[in-house]
Structure formats: structure tokens, C-alpha cells
């Protein structure tokens, strides 16, 4: 479990470029949970998640992993980073090794594991993201497609075998098919391995599909927090913060405006289909102006 208490971070302190990125952020991510972190550009999402594995040290406030202050002097930050994997934006930009296998094995090698264990974990991690180790392992990462490179980068984190995975815009800049595929893999990892997930995304659809809870940031502060369904049921509030809602929720809202009494809190296409059929069949109490 990760807990932030009053975390504030100021960039370039003591210079004319000083800027407060996040201010007094407190939050908790329970083990096994899937939390979405949303907010307009510049709201401090990326800065916040870099505190969760000790890459940034808060200017004020504390970050706890299982009730241990991760910035305490005696804590080994490398162990924290092994347990809390952080996937940066455009992670394919960090690939550097000659082969996919070697690149995915970078993390396990840094953990000081033996060659057998490294090979094991590498193969397993590649399989988790749907890449056949025998086919992709020996290839150069620079010959892969964008979506494949992204998946290799994710495998590089999975090979560390973290308990928690923080994903900063994992699907940005990919085509719809690759986007869906990566989200599918993440969902499968969550259900199969019980990974705790924190997803930073501009894609409300991705958040709706993956997350049980949502934290909304605005200009460095937490302004809303709650179950995904409840947060997305209030499109007016989100629009005021420069955010949208999942496409199906928007669709439901438009239908309601036109007099079809669809439930407001739909998150997935399946739910929307059922809700619309229910509404059309009149199984829910319809407003008076609808025949």
C-alpha cells in the first residue's frame, strides 16, 4: 500500500524559474487496487507519480510504502523501485540494448540475479505482454514497430516483478489496435498476478475500463476522488476542469438530453448497450414526456 501525506514539490527552487508542481497532495493506493489519476496537462500527474517510487523527493510531505517512509535515510531506494514499477511516457525511448532479451533483462541484472533467473524472468515478462520470447528475444529493439517497442519497455518493468505498476500514459501515440492490446495485457496482469495499478491517462476510456477508483488533479491539487462510476457521472464538473468523460458516458448523456432515460453511470460499451436496451424497453421508470 502506498500513502502520500501532504506532498508538495517545487521545481527549480531558488531560481526565477521556480514553479510548484504539486501542492499538499494526500492519497492512498491500497494493495490490489486500480486507480486512475487524471487531470489536464500541467496538473502535476507525472510529477506526482515520480514520488511514488522515490525518483523525486518531496519538497514537503512524506510518501509511505507499507508504512515505511521511502525517503528515510536508511531505506534502499532501489528496493522501493523494484517493488513499485514506474513506466514513463514514451518508454520505448529508453531501449538501448542490442537485443530485446538483453533489454528486458536489464532490470533483473541490476537486481543482482543470476543468469538463469534473469532468463526466466525475461521470458515470462515478454510472454505477459504477448511477445513470443523465441521470436522477439533475439531481435534488435530498434527494428520493432512502435506498439511492439512499447510492449518490450513494459516487459522491462515486469521483469523486475513489482507489486505495483504505475503507468504514465501507457497508450499515448499508439494506433487504436495497439492501444487496446496494451490495455488488455494490463488488465490481464491485474487479474492474474494481483498487481496494484495506478494509471495516469488523458484517455477517459482507458481509465473507465481499467480503474476502480479515480483521483482528479487540478493545478497540483487533488480536487476529486472516488469510485470511477461516481466521478464520471458528473460530466459538468469534469468539463470545468478541462476533462472529458468516457465516450459511452458522453453518448448516454446525449441520449438523455434527447429524452431516452439511459442511466448516467455507464463506463463500458457493454454496460451502455444494456442500459440503452433497458431504457428503450421501458424497464426503468421513464420521464413523463417520453411515450
Amino acid at each position: 500500500m502506498i500513502r502520500c501525506e501532504g506532498v508538495t514539490y517545487v521545481y527549480q527552487r531558488g531560481t526565477p524559474f521556480e514553479a510548484t508542481a504539486i501542492e499538499d497532495v494526500s492519497l492512498e493506493i491500497a494493495a490490489g487496487d486500480a486507480v486512475g489519476i487524471i487531470g489536464a496537462t500541467g496538473s502535476g500527474k507525472s510529477t506526482l507519480v515520480q514520488h511514488l517510487n522515490g525518483l523525486l523527493r518531496p519538497t514537503a510531505g512524506r510518501v509511505y510504502l507499507d508504512d515505511v517512509d521511502i525517503n528515510a535515510r536508511e531505506v534502499d531506494r532501489r528496493r522501493v523501485r523494484q517493488q513499485v514499477g514506474l513506466l514513463f511516457q514514451y518508454p520505448e525511448h529508453q531501449l538501448f540494448e542490442e537485443t530485446v532479451t538483453a533489454d528486458v533483462g536489464f532490470g533483473p541484472r541490476n537486481l543482482g540475479l543470476g543468469p538463469d533467473e534473469v532468463r526466466h524472468r525475461t521470458a515470462r515478462a515478454l510472454a505477459h505482454v504477448g511477445l513470443d520470447p523465441a521470436v522477439f528475444g533475439p531481435r534488435s529493439p530498434f527494428t520493432l514497430s512502435n506498439g511492439e517497442m512499447r510492449r518490450v519497455a513494459i516487459a522491462g518493468l515486469l521483469a523486475m516483478e513489482p507489486r505495483m505498476l504505475i503507468l504514465d500514459e501507457p497508450t499515448a501515440g499508439l494506433d487504436p489496435a495497439s492501444r487496446r492490446e496494451i490495455l488488455d495485457h494490463i488488465m490481464r496482469l491485474r487479474s492474474a498476478r494481483g498487481l496494484t495499478i495506478a494509471l495516469v491517462s488523458h484517455s477517459m476510456d482507458a481509465v473507465a475500463r481499467l480503474c476502480r477508483r479515480v483521483i482528479v488533479l487540478d493545478r497540483g491539487r487533488v480536487v476529486a476522488e472516488g469510485a470511477t462510476r461516481d466521478v464520471f457521472a458528473d460530466p459538468g464538473r469534469l468539463a470545468a476542469l478541462g476533462l472529458g468523460v468516457p465516450q459511452v458516458a458522453e453518448c448516454a448523456r446525449l441520449l438523455r438530453e434527447r429524452g431516452v432515460p439511459v442511466r448516467p453511470d455507464v463506463l463500458t460499451v457493454d454496460e451502455a448497450r444494456r442500459a440503452i436496451l433497458d431504457a428503450l424497453a421501458g424497464r426503468r421508470p421513464a420521464p413523463k414526456n417520453v411515450p
Binding site: 523501485r81 514506474l86 536489464f106 541490476n110 537486481l111
Partner: peptide, 16 residues
């Protein structure tokens, strides 16, 4: 900026 990001990304994979 890119140097900083890559350094952090590799540190997230246990680099020192």
C-alpha cells in the same frame, strides 16, 4: 530534459 527522463527511467529499472 531528455537526459533527466532517461536517467530516471533507467533508475526505475534499478540502474545506479
Amino acid at each position: 530534459e531528455e537526459t533527466e527522463t532517461i536517467m530516471k527511467a533507467q533508475m526505475a529499472r534499478g540502474a545506479e
